[in-house]
Design a protein around this nucleic acid. Sequence first.
DNA 1: GAATTATCGATAAAAAATTATCGATATAAA
DNA 2: TTTATATCGATAATTTTTTATCGATAATTC
Lengths: 212, 212
Amino acid sequence: MVDENIEKVSIPSLRRLPLYYHYMKILKKRKVDYVSSTKIAEKMNLTPIQVRKDLSITGVKGRARVGFNIKDALEKIEEFMGWKDKKDGILVGCGDLGSALLGYNNFKNYGFEIVAGFDVDEKITGTEIHGKRIFPIDRMENLCKRLHIKVGIICVPSKSAQKVAERMIDSGIEAIWNFAPAALEIPNDIALHQEDMAASLTILFKKHRKNR
Amino acid sequence: MVDENIEKVSIPSLRRLPLYYHYMKILKKRKVDYVSSTKIAEKMNLTPIQVRKDLSITGVKGRARVGFNIKDALEKIEEFMGWKDKKDGILVGCGDLGSALLGYNNFKNYGFEIVAGFDVDEKITGTEIHGKRIFPIDRMENLCKRLHIKVGIICVPSKSAQKVAERMIDSGIEAIWNFAPAALEIPNDIALHQEDMAASLTILFKKHRKNR
DNA sequence: GAATTATCGATAAAAAATTATCGATATAAA
DNA sequence: TTTATATCGATAATTTTTTATCGATAATTC
Ligand SMILES: NC(=O)c1ccc[n+]([C@@H]2O[C@H](COP(=O)([O-])OP(=O)(O)OC[C@H]3O[C@@H](n4cnc5c(N)ncnc54)[C@H](O)[C@@H]3O)[C@@H](O)[C@H]2O)c1
Ligand SMILES: NC(=O)c1ccc[n+]([C@@H]2O[C@H](COP(=O)([O-])OP(=O)(O)OC[C@H]3O[C@@H](n4cnc5c(N)ncnc54)[C@H](O)[C@@H]3O)[C@@H](O)[C@H]2O)c1
């Protein structure tokens, strides 16, 4: 069921589901057992209908006049979002942002783990950051192929991003998470998610202007 | 014209525009003067029609058989995205991620500047991180009101996020950029943009699965 | 200089996402 | 026990977003 739906779910829904999840996590800690779509919607300025539709894709069933069982819903969201499948990745560019991500121990809650970092800077390579070993970039291909790593995170300056992406692809990486504000030119069988602070800022300011 | 359109532009368009921008920046560096929607679309796996529609909202005009003047387009995107208006913000939680953001000198290209950091940790307060002064959290209200700061970034652990958000609102903050994976309960006249790694990861993996 | 082609912008059509409607159901109140 | 009410899920309607069509135009080729 999950396998059918994951193809059909919209990106906006995928962005909203974690919000419901975070909220229900809080309620669970407060020993609340049930929550209605109305209540969730109120908190996030959405309609109850949309919340129900989003939740329905995970397969969770609510009860009329009662709402959704929080334990069930959390379970179903985790399952649907794929946070229960374990995936390993590597990170290239262990500077300020890269180091923060290497130490982000929340990734494990989403089934993801960064197993190693890579860099060109010899002051960094050979060391550990937040307990993760940092290798020279030349070791990437070998390590990724040996460990069958398919996910790569790019945290290098923009001007190096394209080169790093190509090297990742040569190393067998199939999914790239790019934090550099650069338009990567890559084959379209490689999955790419662009993390864009410029877009985020603009969206925030747009909402702000609308509120005034 | 920008003022009319900003209300109407879709979030997906807002996320795509920076991609075109990054790409055109590269072309400009290569001394290319014009680029067609076809070429842009090819690079990013979109349709030329969508690229044209997105660009049209910025007000930039293309020329048949030639494409878009890159210098003009960059200018129009900057203007439309509001990257030319200067906005100041503060950041709360100067740990790993917060420090990286404090040092992110690309924000200025988007018209944004973090003027100060706040934290509860007395080992950090009073110091500077990447040249930005870090104050104890109790100073936030005074400083924000005095400098008319309206934008706040949350980089504290999830469990403190709600409290920090409320304090920001008391300090006159009207737009919150939240990096903590927590559902904030705030009045709906406060703009909120939630940065969600869980959503990003899921979107990336979804694309990856589709490609295989 | 005429024909061909790439591209644009406007408008129309199609697809996707959101919102509304409504009968069913479970709890609470009368 | 009966009535009122909150909420669900399914389906329908609406709105938004994406994609297609097509005439106009500017560069290139013949
Ligand atoms: N700092 C932030 O908060 C932030 C936020 C969003 C996006 N970004 C983007 O993330 C990227 C990294 O930012 P940062 O602030 O961490 O920069 P940084 O300078 O602190 O780190 C960059 C690291 O990449 C390494 N590097 C450079 N070229 C390399 C290559 N070819 N191969 C391997 N490693 C290489 C450097 O040695 C350095 O360690 C940039 O593209 C930046 O625009 C940063
Ligand atoms: N590290 C990452 O790469 C990353 C990525 C995405 C999201 N996040 C989120 O960003 C937040 C910060 O992550 P981090 O890794 O930088 O954590 P961190 O522990 O390194 O930093 C947290 C900082 O917040 C301060 N703090 C705690 N409570 C506070 C309060 N009430 N007021 C002011 N300051 C307070 C702490 O003193 C510390 O300096 C977390 O919510 C995390 O989930 C982190």
